[in-house]
Simulated assay, not measured.
Amino acid sequence: MADITWEEPFCAEGANCFRIGTDPDGNAYIAVAGREDAPLTDTREALRNLILEIKAGKADHLL
């Protein structure tokens, strides 16, 4: 597993918490808190774009 630096968990109103992490190679990771051993991974740029789209409300239909 890569050397991932994880941010503090983000928890919504429910019990669903996730963490965002990065590694020295420029990869970004998203994992359910407590399941950091099985993250989704992509580039930091892709993660940044995902967060911007979520903030813009483009994923509200998924919630």
Rank of each mutant, 00 (worst) to 15 (best):
residue 4 I to W: 00
residue 9 P to I: 07
residue 26 G to N: 02
residue 27 N to A: 08
residue 17 C to M: 08
residue 37 D to C: 14
residue 9 P to Y: 07
residue 24 P to N: 01
residue 13 E to L: 11
residue 50 L to R: 00
residue 55 K to P: 05
residue 52 L to T: 01
residue 47 L to G: 05
residue 13 E to H: 03
residue 58 K to L: 14
residue 26 G to K: 05
residue 8 E to Q: 10
residue 40 L to W: 06
residue 15 A to Y: 03
residue 56 A to F: 01
residue 28 A to G: 12
residue 38 A to I: 14
residue 4 I to H: 00
residue 44 R to M: 15
residue 17 C to N: 04
residue 8 E to I: 06
residue 17 C to T: 06
residue 6 W to F: 08
residue 10 F to E: 14
residue 33 A to N: 11
residue 43 T to N: 04
residue 8 E to P: 02
residue 11 C to L: 09
residue 14 G to T: 08
residue 32 V to W: 04
residue 60 D to M: 12
residue 24 P to L: 02
residue 53 E to T: 00
residue 50 L to P: 03
residue 12 A to F: 00
residue 2 A to F: 00
residue 41 T to S: 10
residue 24 P to I: 02
residue 1 M to D: 09
residue 13 E to R: 01
residue 56 A to H: 05
residue 38 A to S: 14
residue 26 G to W: 00
residue 45 E to K: 06
residue 15 A to T: 08
residue 43 T to L: 06
residue 15 A to D: 15
residue 1 M to L: 12
residue 6 W to M: 13
residue 52 L to P: 00
residue 59 A to K: 06
residue 3 D to F: 02
residue 7 E to V: 07
residue 3 D to N: 09
residue 18 F to D: 08
residue 18 F to P: 03
residue 42 D to E: 11
residue 18 F to G: 13
residue 25 D to L: 07
residue 56 A to Y: 01
residue 46 A to L: 13
residue 20 I to G: 06
residue 32 V to C: 11
residue 31 A to V: 11
residue 54 I to W: 01
residue 12 A to L: 13
residue 37 D to G: 14
residue 61 H to C: 09
residue 34 G to D: 09
residue 15 A to K: 02
residue 62 L to I: 02
residue 29 Y to F: 14
residue 34 G to Q: 06
residue 42 D to H: 03
residue 30 I to E: 10
residue 7 E to K: 11
residue 29 Y to T: 14
residue 45 E to L: 12
residue 20 I to C: 09
residue 43 T to M: 05
residue 47 L to S: 08
residue 58 K to V: 01
residue 43 T to R: 02
residue 42 D to Q: 05
residue 15 A to G: 09
residue 6 W to Q: 06
residue 37 D to T: 14
residue 13 E to K: 01
residue 25 D to A: 13
residue 10 F to H: 09
residue 60 D to C: 09
residue 3 D to Q: 11
residue 6 W to N: 06
residue 18 F to Y: 11
residue 42 D to L: 10
residue 15 A to Q: 07
residue 52 L to S: 09
residue 9 P to G: 06
residue 58 K to C: 04
residue 58 K to G: 08
residue 56 A to I: 03
residue 22 T to V: 10
residue 4 I to F: 00
residue 17 C to W: 02
residue 41 T to M: 10
residue 59 A to S: 13
residue 61 H to N: 10
residue 4 I to A: 03
residue 45 E to D: 12
residue 42 D to N: 07
residue 26 G to P: 03
residue 3 D to C: 04
residue 49 N to S: 12
residue 63 L to M: 10
residue 44 R to D: 13
residue 9 P to C: 11
residue 56 A to D: 15
residue 61 H to M: 08
residue 61 H to I: 03
residue 5 T to D: 00
residue 49 N to H: 06
residue 32 V to Y: 03
residue 42 D to R: 02
residue 20 I to D: 02
residue 19 R to Y: 00
residue 20 I to K: 03
residue 21 G to P: 01
residue 48 R to Q: 14
residue 2 A to V: 10
residue 47 L to N: 03
residue 25 D to H: 02
residue 27 N to Q: 06
residue 10 F to R: 05
residue 60 D to K: 11
residue 10 F to C: 12
residue 34 G to F: 04
residue 62 L to N: 01
residue 58 K to R: 11
residue 21 G to T: 04
residue 47 L to M: 15
residue 23 D to Q: 02
